Amino acid sequence: MRIAFVVVRYGLDVHGGAEYHCREWAERLATRHHVEVLTTCARDFVTWADYYAPGVELINGVRVQRFRVDAPRDNDTFNAFSHIIFGGPHSDEQEIEWMRRQGPYATGLFSAIAAQHDDFDLFIFMTYLYCTTYFGLPLARDKAVLVPTAHDELPIYLRLFQRLFALPRYLIYNTPTERTMLHELFDIASLPGSEVGVGIDVPSFRSMVAEASPPLLLYIGRVDTSKGCEQLYDYFLRYKQAHPSPLQLAFAGRANITLPPHPDVQMLGFVSEERKRELLAQCALVVLPSPFESLSILCLEAWAAAKPTLVNGTTPVLRDQTVRSNGGLFYQDYAEFAACLDLLLADHQLRQQLGRQGRRFVEQWYSWLVVEERLEAALHTAVEVTR
C-alpha cells in the first residue's frame, strides 16, 4: 500500500497531539508499506512561520516532503477577524477567509497533493481544523481518509465543516465519544469509518521506580491557556493554601504562557522521552486540566505506567475515558478538584488500584499490537471503498 499523510507540522521536535499521532502511525506503517508525509516548513503552531528547510528529508524511515507557508499568521488580525466569525452573522465567503487566515496556507503543498494524486492509494488527512485539510482534502477526495481528532469547540460549528465532512471516503475516529459527537453534528452516518486511536508502549512493572517524596502532581504537554494550565496552577495554589504540605506540581512541556514562580511549582520545559518516563514513575498522579481533547495520550501514558489520573470532567472525552478505564477521577470545579485530591493523596492503595485498572484498560485497547491491528484493518477497508 502507498500512503501519504497530510499534516500541519512534522518532526522529531514537534509534539502536538495530532502531529505526534501522525508520526507514530507513519513510522509504524512504514515498516510494511510505502509511507510519505506532506507537510509545511512550520514548527510553531501560533505563527506557522517557516522553520524547517523546504524539500525532502528522511525521518525514521519516512520520506517527508516540506513546503513553505505562504505567509506567517498575523495573530492580531486573525483574532479580530475571528470575533467577526464567532460574534454574529457572517457569510460563507467570510468563513473561508477565516480558514485562510488561520493557516497554515501553503500553495506548494496543495500543488503537490494534486500533482501526486496518482502516486498513492490513500491520502490520510490528520485533524479537521486547519488549511492543510480544508484546502488539501478536496484535491484527493476520491482517496481521502480523514482523521478529525475533533472535540466540542466553536470552529466545528462553522458551516464550512459541513461541506468538508461530506468529502472523505473514510473516517477514522479516536474514541467512541468523538464518533458520537460527529454523527450528531454532521450527516455522515453513511460514510464508512472505524475507531483506531494511538498506541502506547506499556512498560514492565520491573522498570518502574518508587514514588517521589514529597508527593508530585504531574502535567505533561503544552503549557497553554487552552490546555487549562492556568486553572490548574490556580487550583493547586488554592489547595496548598487550604492544605499546607510539601506537595509539588510539575509542568513538563513547552510553555506558551508565563506562570508566576512558586517554590512548589516546577516548570521543567520540554523533556526527553526518558525523562518523561522517569516523571511518570515518580509522580503520585497525573493531572489533565484540558477542556478540549479528542483522545488523551497523556492519560494513556499515565495508565500504562500504572498511575491514576485526575482529569477535567467538563471534557466529554476525558470523562468517558476515565469511566471506561476506571483509572482515575474527574472534577468539574475547584471543590471537586480538592475533594478528589484529598481522597487520592490520603490513600496509597486506592492510587495503586486505579493505576492497575488503567493499565489493564491500555493493554486491552491501546497497546500498539492492538492499535496496529485496528489501523491495518481500517486502511485496507478504506482502499476497498476508494476503488
Rank of each mutant, 00 (worst) to 15 (best):
C229E: 05
R238M: 11
L232E: 00
T175P: 08
E184I: 00
A250V: 07
N174G: 11
L191D: 02
A212S: 13
L158K: 12
S204H: 12
R159L: 05
Y173I: 01
L182K: 03
G193Y: 08
P246N: 05
Q241W: 04
P246C: 03
P214L: 09
P244V: 00
G199F: 12
S207G: 13
M208E: 09
L249T: 11
I188L: 13
A212K: 12
I188C: 14
Y157W: 15
L217S: 01
E211Q: 15
R169V: 06
L182Q: 06
I220Q: 03
I156H: 13
P176R: 14
C229P: 02
L216R: 12
S207F: 11
L217D: 00
D234G: 04
K240E: 03
R222F: 05
L249K: 13
Y219K: 12
R159V: 01
G253K: 03
S245Y: 08
P176S: 14
H243C: 06
A242E: 11
L164G: 10
K227T: 01
R179C: 01
F186S: 05
V198F: 02
Y219R: 01
I257H: 01
L191W: 04
R238D: 12
Y239K: 11
P215M: 04
A210H: 12
V209S: 15
L167P: 02
I188W: 14
S207V: 10
N256V: 00
A189L: 03
E195Y: 00
N174S: 09
E211Y: 14
C229M: 09
P244R: 02
F186W: 04
Q231H: 10
P214W: 08
S204D: 15
S190L: 08
L167M: 14
N174C: 08
G197Y: 03
F251G: 02
T225Y: 11
L232A: 02
F251D: 06
E211H: 15
Q231C: 09
R163K: 13
I257W: 03
S245R: 09
Y235E: 04
R206Y: 13
A242S: 11
Y219F: 15
L237E: 00
L232K: 04
G199Q: 11
F205Q: 15
E195D: 05
A212E: 13
E184H: 15
Y173H: 07
Q248K: 15
M181E: 01
P176N: 13
D224C: 01
L182V: 08
A210L: 15
R206M: 10
L171M: 14
F161D: 00
L218T: 05
E184Y: 12
G199N: 08
L160K: 10
R163Q: 10
S245N: 11
I156D: 11
S226E: 04
D234E: 15
S190M: 07
V223A: 04
I156M: 13
P246Y: 04
V198D: 01
L164K: 09
E195G: 07
Y235S: 00
L216D: 03
A166H: 07
P203V: 06
P176M: 15
